[in-house]
């Protein structure tokens, strides 16, 4: 929340400064901002609804059964896959992860889940492709997915599960 306020203060401050320095340029930059936002809107809105529907359908109980602490690497793979295909805002993701831990999920699996959740974005692939092309998008997402297992391994060691 704090950060959003800082961002608004920064944006409004710089916009005011820009306005006093050059009205034309300010107008141009605002036009660009609106155009860029409108350009992305269809994707943003679609993604939001997709995520909402996914979260409503996925049952946390089922997930914690699949990725329990005795589920080992199999559970870690499931966790990374679930993390990769879902896109959950952080303020929901971490409490969910905490619930999963309480529900019997292992640290390794939760580590893989959180890591791939943040770095891999299957639902945002079309958006990413628009800017980075297919090759970079695929490479980045696949590598980030694999890296989730490195994170799981390290967390498993540190938390004493391995």
């Amino acid at each position: 929340m704090m950060q959003t306020i800082i961002f608004y203060a920064l944006a409004i401050g710089l916009l005011t400064l820009s306005f006093f320095k050059d009205k034309q340029k300010t107008k141009k930059s605002l036009k660009k901002a609106v155009k860029a936002l409108e350009n992305m809107m269809p994707q943003f809105l679609g993604i939001i609804i997709l995520v909402g529907v996914m979260l409503a359908v996925i049952d946390p109980d089922m997930i914690s059964k699949l990725i329990g602490s005795s589920s080992g690497w199999y559970g870690t793979i499931v966790a990374a896959l679930v993390g990769g295909v879902t896109l959950i805002p952080g303020f929901i993701a971490f409490p969910t992860a905490a619930l999963l831990l309480q529900g019997g999920a292992g640290y390794m699996q939760v580590g893989a889940f959180v890591s791939s959740l943040m770095m891999v974005g299957v639902v945002t692939v079309p958006l990413e492709t628009k800017y980075f092309g297919k090759k970079v998008t695929m490479a980045r997402n696949i590598l980030a997915f694999l890296y989730a297992f490195v994170v799981a391994l390290i967390i498993g060691k540190v938390m004493g599960e391995l």
């Binding site: 961002f7 944006a11 409004i12 916009l15 820009s18 930059s29 605002l30 901002a33 860029a36």
Partner: peptide
Amino acid sequence: PPIFVLLGLLDVW
């Protein structure tokens, strides 16, 4: 909104 405003300013200035 602030991200896109900053983006527009960055692009122009």
